[in-house]
């Protein structure tokens, strides 16, 4: 399998399931793509073990369910977009690794230039971990309590 495949589409449930071979992308890429989608989809990751047991490959399954109603075409578009995101994240990891030195130097200069002082010694540490998709520490999710209010709380 050269890329991800659409495993199933359930328009009634607004859900599409993708499958991709374990090993096609690093796990961080799968997480990274999932992260991009969790503000507009319910994302459930699963693993379909290979015939020869857990250590012999297998497939990752990505279940995406729209937070709003989605048609079959929209679900297929969504799965395509997820595939694009996987590829983009994978490529970006390679580019960042290849250009790591210049990226760090420019970023450090830009922040130091703006701050006008010395930077913490661990300033760039968290950018070295390959999990740069998480370099958005504010998080995408709106606090749960804000999003889900008990109907009763709205009553006078």
């Amino acid at each position: 399998m050269a890329q991800h495949t659409v495993e199933s589409v359930d328009a009634a449930a607004h859900r599409v399931t993708l499958a991709l071979e374990v090993g096609l992308y690093p796990i961080e890429v799968l997480y990274g793509a999932a992260y991009v989608f969790i503000d507009r989809c319910f994302v459930l990751l699963d693993k379909d073990e290979g015939k020869d047991g857990p250590s012999k490959g297998g497939r990752y399954l990505v279940h995406l369910r729209g937070k709003t109603e989605l048609s079959k075409k929209e679900l297929l578009d969504l799965s395509g977009e997820f595939g694009n995101e996987l590829l983009s994240q994978a490529l970006r990891r390679k580019v960042v690794k290849a250009n790591q030195k210049i990226i760090e130097e420019i970023t450090t200069q830009a922040i130091a230039g703006a701050a006008g002082g010395t930077l913490p010694t661990d300033f760039l540490d968290s950018s070295d971990d390959g999990m740069d998709f998480l370099d958005d520490p504010l998080g995408i999710a709106v606090p749960w309590e804000d999003k889900f209010k008990k109907k009763s709380a709205d009553q006078p």
Binding site: Y31, A34, V43
Partner: peptide, 10 residues
């Protein structure tokens, strides 16, 4: 489930 995934990533 979304939160469990998000927390795992963090």
């Amino acid at each position: 489930c979304n939160f469990a995934l998000h927390n795992t990533m963090q």
